[in-house]
Design a binder for these strands. Sequence first.
DNA 1: TTGAAATTGAAAACCGATTTCATTTGACCG
DNA 2: CGGTCAAATGAAATCGGTTTTCAATTTCAA
Lengths: 135, 135
Amino acid sequence: MTPQREMIFRAFFELGEHVTVAELYRKVCEKNPAVGYSTVWRNLKLICKVGLAEEVNLGDGVTRYDRITRQPHGHLYCLQCKKLTEFEMNSITDLLDLAAKQYDFAVEGVKVEISGYCRSCRKMNERLAKDGRTN
Amino acid sequence: MTPQREMIFRAFFELGEHVTVAELYRKVCEKNPAVGYSTVWRNLKLICKVGLAEEVNLGDGVTRYDRITRQPHGHLYCLQCKKLTEFEMNSITDLLDLAAKQYDFAVEGVKVEISGYCRSCRKMNERLAKDGRTN
DNA sequence: TTGAAATTGAAAACCGATTTCATTTGACCG
DNA sequence: CGGTCAAATGAAATCGGTTTTCAATTTCAA
Ligand SMILES: [Mn+2]
Ligand SMILES: [Mn+2]
Ligand SMILES: [Zn+2]
Ligand SMILES: [Zn+2]
């Protein structure tokens, strides 16, 4: 356990959900600018390997690291503002396990991503559309 | 509508599900080696834009292109042999729509990926483990 | 037929992820 | 306490898929 490792682990859990390597690196640099990017990356991988987080890939080119919570959750991903919202998946995972069982598939992990438009983005778009029409 | 475009569209639908750019490029080159990789890439993007396919991202570094079918489906992704198997999601999408509604979220697309180990990989691993023990 | 707009192919640029490697560090043992 | 060695680190290089650039070609509607 090195000081860098402790600092990185600590920062990861302070920063909350859906962290990117770059974000965590920036955060860690505030405390100690000598820490290397690759060290942050490696420790993030380590956090995953020991089962405290998992990678989340939304197809936007960057990998995010998400704390693994007791309750499985899915993601609502706004295509406009890129915000991620979590929702509980208790009943859904039962159905998914059932589906997997029918294929004799041993489940390790489940990812559910719903993409679309969040409330606030839709409201904003409505307002902009109206303004456009009246001008 | 150029001959390249027609060839690429045709090859995409012949090749079936979960195609990568490189795979489709190889396929197209068999017919016409003069076609460029970027043309294949651009037309794959176009196929997505017109709503005939969607990108699938499994976190393994390559983007796959999947035909959009009438019935929504999820994926079983074997972490060992990398095979993708599809399963129907009729009842599941209802639950997901419900979850989205609770957040006033306008759904555009849903992705469900279950990672784990397929039957044949597990069988093979059992056999290898046994052989290892007896030697 | 003609010209603007779209498409193409080769190559380069991009960019996050990952590896390399020389150096430092920390846990452990006597 | 040193000494030892495997693990960890940081800077830089590399990797590999994706995306852009740009000059040349093709399409298509007028
Ligand atoms: Mn999450
Ligand atoms: Mn599919
Ligand atoms: Zn939004
Ligand atoms: Zn398998």
